[in-house]
Design a protein around this nucleic acid. Structure first.
Lengths: 257, 257
DNA sequence: TCGAAGCACTTGTTCAGACAAGTTTCCGCG
DNA sequence: CGCGGAAACTTGTCTGAACAAGTGCTTCGA
């Protein structure tokens, strides 16, 4: 458990630096869409790296869908793939913006305390291990829509204390600080609103809520966040499209009716 | 691919063969979830490959979210079972069987009557057009778990009258009779149990239920069924896995806690 | 002029070795 | 018996080299 170094300043491995530099050039428009990247040999020289290292960096970009290309041809910058459903599904802020709605939030509480039994189990840590808990009321066009309870493992949660939680997306902030969220498992069920839920969401206690519990994992497989989001079911639903034949995996959306 | 334009079959690159073999072991259950993979050194020996090649294969699996792990620790198989979600997601019977649970049902009502406003809208027909409505209580190991209200368009629903609804899967029966279900859209929300729901599901009125509304479409694009399934949220949840990089689309499961 | 062969350049695959960094195991000491 | 620490083992990073395979430009010949 002790190896995490979020936030510490150490020079990352070479292949990550190469990948970051190229990502930067692409996002800055220095390498416009459709342009060919420098050849592997050129990159080797520029970064004083071996070809294996450069290829490792390119593989990462290919993986993210940033570049394409084939054997014999230099890799080209691809059209910034459609806002990854991952991001959209994970981040309330991005989801709302993509729909043309105005996201908002009111932070009710942020605290560093020992993990409770549920969060500890979900995060795979011992009960009482320090975590950072955030309770935020999320708004859509000013209307209370969802109540978000998150528990972050300490090395990640620490990054939230120098962030204005009412300013925007936690995930965007964490990503900028080097936290590389990779996968998430969402469990959806229904639950009756308790007094606190009801008060904040301006509904009556006992009313049914649509609950999405979330376990987010970073690139190394470390469980980073456990979340419990409670939606007003009259304002938000989940939609799943599935198609039989064409091995088109199901597509999941959050929707407002 | 793996063949040239003349149809010749060429052996794919070694790293792909290694990855495929490992994928197979995972999907066959030979490497169960949570199990550690052989060490890189062992894999090198087994496949007579160098470490770089083995690592290339492992990177692919990691990318697909099949394995996780960190430095110093052997990679472990992650929860990401791959069954065809469509059938499983659509059919309560198949879903239950796949989990090793015993599905059951008690048909409360089957009737041919004019479509109500909601079903008519969902099916794209005029209100009052005849449809076949089925109300079934679905059981898991004998326990009332879900209440299923389905409206089938008349030409399809007619096939249900020569079928013992308590015998098994409606979808299997329809498929045998030539109804080719192709796609479905599921909308998930939460709703309070009404008196009837509560009575049949042996819960109290007003308790939160997990609702999945469904619109199934056949191969020609005709809307065939509108369904309203209400689950006891303490017995069934929906789970969605999503992975960022490997453009692995989200995977949807129904689960019993 | 036009087509094809050839060549230079590119990426894809694979190997062998070395060191760094994290984890687990196990032995000896208190 | 318990605990600390060394040792063995594992994965992560990086290098340098070689050959295979695909692409595109050039050049040569008909």
């Amino acid at each position: 458990m002790g190896g995490n170094s979020y936030g510490q300043v150490v020079t990352p491995p070479l292949h990550l630096r190469v990948a970051d530099e190229l990502r930067g050039r692409i996002s800055r428009g220095q390498l416009p869409v459709g342009a060919a990247l420098p050849s592997e040999a050129q990159l080797c020289e520029e970064f004083a790296a071996s070809r294996g290292t450069v290829r490792q960096a390119l593989a990462a970009l290919r993986n993210e869908g940033l570049i394409g290309g084939g054997q014999g041809k230099p890799p080209v910058v691809r059209q910034a793939a459609v806002a990854q459903p991952f991001e959209t599904f994970l981040s309330f802020t991005r989801w709302a913006r993509q729909m043309g709605r105005e996201p908002g939030q009111r932070t009710v509480e942020i605290a560093r305390r020992g993990a409770g039994p549920i969060a500890a189990d979900a995060l795979g840590i011992d009960e009482g291990t320090p975590v950072v808990e955030v309770l935020r009321l999320r708004l859509l066009d000013g209307i209370p829509t969802m109540l978000e309870r998150s528990s972050f493992i300490e090395p990640v949660g620490r990054l939230l204390f120098d962030f204005d939680l009412d300013a925007g997306s936690i995930y965007e902030h964490l990503q900028e600080r080097g936290v590389d969220l990779r996968a998430a498992r969402h469990t959806i069920d229904a639950i009756a609103a308790n007094e606190i839920d009801a008060d904040l969401l301006t509904i009556t206690a006992g009313a049914p809520l649509l609950r999405e519990r979330r376990r987010a994992i970073d690139a190394t497989g470390t469980r980073v966040e456990y979340g419990d989001d409670r939606y007003r079911p009259d304002l938000v639903t989940f939609t799943i499209d599935n198609v039989q034949a064409g091995r088109v995996s199901p597509h999941v959306l959050k929707e407002t009716p």
